[in-house]
Amino acid sequence: MIRLTTPLKTEDIIKLNVGDKILISGTIFTARDKVHLFLLEKSEKEQNIRTKINNGIIYHCGPIIKNNQVISAGPTTSNRMSLYTPQLIEEHNIKAIIGKGGMSKEVKEALKGKAVYLSAVGGAGVLYANSMKVKSTYKKEFGMAEAIWEFEVKDFPVIVSIDAKGNSLYDKVYNKSKEVYEELIK
């Protein structure tokens, strides 16, 4: 088990390998579909919010929060954000992305030498919520699931599934399943 604390350093990130199990402590920011579009907007307005996530960790998550307590907060499907992610990594110097289900090959390329993709267990909402505290919220007008939640996390468990060297656990699984699939639908 590898422990990492934010702010993450690129030199630590590029050492990670697919399959490594990590515990993250520090600050993470949720970002879903709407927030990705917001972060990539070229506007002077609310620039202070956009720069908050610079060099940080993005969590693909739309949590349930009640009275500022995290009730349930597992990952959402990452692939919807694939389209925006290479630009996000480039412009905001993102160091790690936490989500589920994997991302496109364009994202895998964009991660090279810069960042990693980490898998959390989809559906395990309470397990994660118990290691999270709300620090701040931005863009609340997007609604609970779509706002930017800044969380303080302690020993948040994830698995490296796309590393900064171009290796992907999802590719491995896909290629193996493809062989079986081709036999089965012959």
Partner: peptide, 20 residues
Amino acid sequence: NILTNLEKAKSESKPICQDT
């Protein structure tokens, strides 16, 4: 992890997954 989460969700009466 999934099974642990199920136990916690039940005992704490919280939604298993944030996507209800």
